[in-house]
Amino acid sequence: MSLKHSLFHALAIKHQDEIYEYARYLLRNASDAEDVAQEVLLRAWSKMGTFNILSARSWIKRTTHNACIDLIRKREATTNKEYPLESIEQKPESADGPEKQAETQELQAYLHEVIEQLPDNLRNVFVLHELQGHNHRQISKILQIPVNTSKTHLMRARQQLRSQLKAFEPAHEK
């Protein structure tokens, strides 16, 4: 295996889930997110050696963001198709009773839904910071926004999330 192959392999293993997760929240669709993840990794493969491997994470995230935006624009231009929210993967059996499990699953699904329904600018910052662990300086580079804007968006996203989750009631309690 060549050095290029080895580096790419390491890069793909390390970042593929992050790329997919970010794309999934931006696109709100599993198969599109998978396509974007594939496209980003292929771009990474063809650009290997042209970008700094030490700042690969930011490069990858920026490329993912752009690929998602391109896809959203294409989607808007071609159809008015609604992309339904996919059901969240089944959680493995736990020691909790079935009622508790159902409630947890419901809350998980609701949480994903709430994040996905955040306004684009707030959601991008929230996912990058909260789920993917980027700091505001990195987010500012990835999204090309000022650091303070990133901070404000994060605060607003958190506030929206809190008020949305306060309204959550499990189905069986309604």
């Binding site: 889930d17 599993a30 998980q108 994903h112 989750l165």
Partner: peptide, 15 residues
């Protein structure tokens, strides 16, 4: 704090 805990415990999208 509760929201933060929920987010940390949230199932993550994986390939």
């Amino acid at each position: 704090r509760q929201v933060a805990e929920m987010i940390r415990a949230m199932d993550r999208y994986k390939l």
